[in-house]
Each structure stands twice: as structure tokens, then as C-alpha cells.
């Protein structure tokens, strides 16, 4: 039985987070959408108004030029596909590095398992920015890796690693590795050991039982870990900005440059709108579809 007061209370409780999200999460996208139709101008804020009154008539000026520009200037299309490529291969590398680690943690004794898990989680709680920064000292021309290789006589002159796409891959795999390991670990611990024992009794080698039992059963973990790495990697700004070079094209960096360096708010807004439609909406749709499949 719900009386009037309780129904009121319920509405108020729903309204608090709902209003907060409507104002500070949803409304901003409409503002960005609106500004993406404006033109850059020397004004404050630096774009032309969409609506103006002239002789008591409402003038609406919509410009599709920003979107035409995104399409014409190959930079943006290239950046979009390059982000996809970098995020995809980083995810594959993170899986290759993370899977053995998750496997070993999941199969270790109780005592070791807690310690190893702690070791996996610890870097995640330390500053993301500082972990990316740590690689600068490793990868640069007179950095640690080059010094080591030179001393060992493996190379004659320093390798150029910093400010390349290679450095970006290393940075992404490094910073997002815990996101790959944790869901994989959670999945691998759930696999029924009796299946493996049965396979062994029937004479299957370790390799065969891994390929036919463990790997297929860990597919949900692989998918969960991969999405957790792929999604943040695709819009990444810090890693390409610190480790990548001028020719490292990633859409997050392009938007940043458009806004902070070129101060072109309408084009930056158009980039954001395009990213939202071509990147975020498909990801959300896929997640929804996956969730429905599960339930």
C-alpha cells in the first residue's frame, strides 16, 4: 500500500539524479550539436549565433560547412580509422600479454593468488598520467632501453621509439592491462576443474586440453576484457599526446588540437558530434545487445 506521501517521496528521489543527469550529461550534447552548425567568428564566445532578431524577424542561420569540412579534409576520416586501428591492435596485444598472466593468477595457490592479484591491481590505483610518463624515460633516444641495448652491443645507434605509433601501442597496452586481466581472471577461476581432469584422464595433452576446453570457455572473459580496453583506447588523448609523434592520428587528439590550439569551437563541436554518432552510439548499442543476449 502506497500512500500519497510515499508516492511523492518516490518521485522526488527519482527526480534528484534524473535532473542532475539531464542537465549535466544530456543537455551538453544538445549544446554541442547546436554549436556544430555555427561558424567561427571573432567574438566571445568565438562563434556566430544560430538565432538572431533582425527588424523583429527571427533569423536562423545553420551552416553545414563544418560537416562538409570534416568530410573534405582527409585528416578527420583518417584519424577516425587510425584510432580504430590503434585501439584494435592494442587490444589484441593486451590480450596476448594479459591472458597468460590471468591464467597463472587463476591457477596459483590461494596464498599466491591474493598477492598476485594485488600486484595486478596496484598500478591501476596509481596515477594514469604518471604511468604514461614513466615510459618517456624508457623509450626516448637517450633513455633506458637504448642505453641498455647500446651497452650490450645489440645496436650501434639509438633506436627512435618515442614519438612513434610503437610508443602509443606500448602505452595503451601498459596502462589498460589491468582492465584486461581482471575480467579474464574472474572468468578463468569459474572454469570447472573436473573437465580438465577428465581430458587428462582421457590422454589429452596440456596443449590440447587448453585449446579445446579452457580457451573456448574463457571466451566471455576475453570479450569483457577486450571491450574494457578497446573502448577507452579509441578516444584516448593523453597517450598519443605524450608518447605519439606529430603523425600519430587519433581522434581524441584531433579534437583537443582543434579546440585548444586552433580555437575552432564549431569544428571541434562537429568532430564531437560525429564521434558520438559514429563511435559512442554503436558501442552503446552493441553493449545493450550483448546484455540482452546474456539475460
Amino acid at each position: 500500500m502506497m500512500n500519497w506521501f510515499q508516492r511523492r517521496g518516490r518521485t522526488i528521489i527519482i527526480a534528484i539524479p534524473m535532473l542532475w543527469l539531464l542537465i549535466f550529461f544530456l543537455a551538453p550534447f544538445f549544446v554541442v550539436f547546436k554549436i556544430s552548425f555555427a561558424e567561427i567568428a571573432r567574438a566571445r564566445p568565438p562563434f556566430t549565433p544560430l538565432f538572431s532578431w533582425e527588424e523583429s524577424r527571427l533569423l536562423i542561420s545553420l551552416s553545414l560547412e563544418n560537416y562538409a569540412y570534416l568530410w573534405d579534409d582527409t585528416l578527420y576520416v583518417k584519424a577516425y580509422f587510425s584510432s580504430m586501428k590503434i585501439a584494435f591492435f592494442s587490444t589484441v596485444f593486451a590480450l596476448l600479454v594479459g591472458y597468460p598472466m590471468a591464467y597463472v593468477v587463476a591457477r596459483s595457490s590461494d596464498r599466491w593468488r591474493n598477492i598476485l592479484l594485488m600486484l595486478v591491481v596496484l598500478p591501476f590505483w596509481t596515477s594514469f598520467l604518471l604511468r604514461v610518463y614513466a615510459w618517456i624515460g624508457f623509450l626516448k633516444g637517450n633513455g633506458l632501453i637504448n642505453a641498455l641495448l647500446l651497452k650490450l652491443g645489440l645496436i650501434n645507434e639509438p633506436l627512435i621509439m618515442l614519438q612513434t605509433n610503437f610508443a602509443v601501442y606500448v602505452g595503451i597496452v601498459y596502462t589498460y592491462l589491468p582492465f584486461m586481466i581482471l575480467p579474464l581472471y574472474a572468468n578463468l577461476t569459474k572454469i570447472d576443474n573436473t573437465l580438465l581432469e577428465a581430458a587428462e584422464d582421457l590422454g589429452a595433452s596440456k596443449f590440447v586440453s587448453f585449446m579445446t576446453i579452457t580457451l573456448p570457455l574463457s571466451l566471455p572473459g576475453i570479450i569483457a576484457g577486450s571491450t574494457l580496453v578497446f573502448i577507452p583506447a579509441i578516444g584516448e588523448f593523453v597517450i598519443p599526446a605524450l608518447l605519439g609523434g606529430p603523425d600519430t592520428l587519433m581522434i581524441g587528439k584531433v579534437l583537443w588540437t582543434e579546440f585548444f590550439n586552433n580555437r575552432d569551437w564549431p569544428v571541434a563541436s562537429a568532430v564531437a558530434t560525429a564521434m558520438l554518432v559514429l563511435l559512442v552510439l554503436p558501442i552503446m548499442w552493441m553493449r545493450r545487445a550483448a546484455e540482452e543476449e546474456v539475460s
Binding site: 542537465i23 543537455a27 551538453p28 554541442v32 578516444g235 588523448f237 579534437l255 569551437w265 564531437a272 559512442v280
Partner: peptide, 12 residues
């Protein structure tokens, strides 16, 4: 992506 969140909130 953080760049979108940041830009759109600033515009708001």
C-alpha cells in the same frame, strides 16, 4: 570518450 564529455560540458 573524455574529450567529448569535457568539450560538451564546457559548452553547456
Amino acid at each position: 570518450p573524455e574529450v567529448i564529455t569535457g568539450l560538451s560540458l564546457l559548452m553547456l
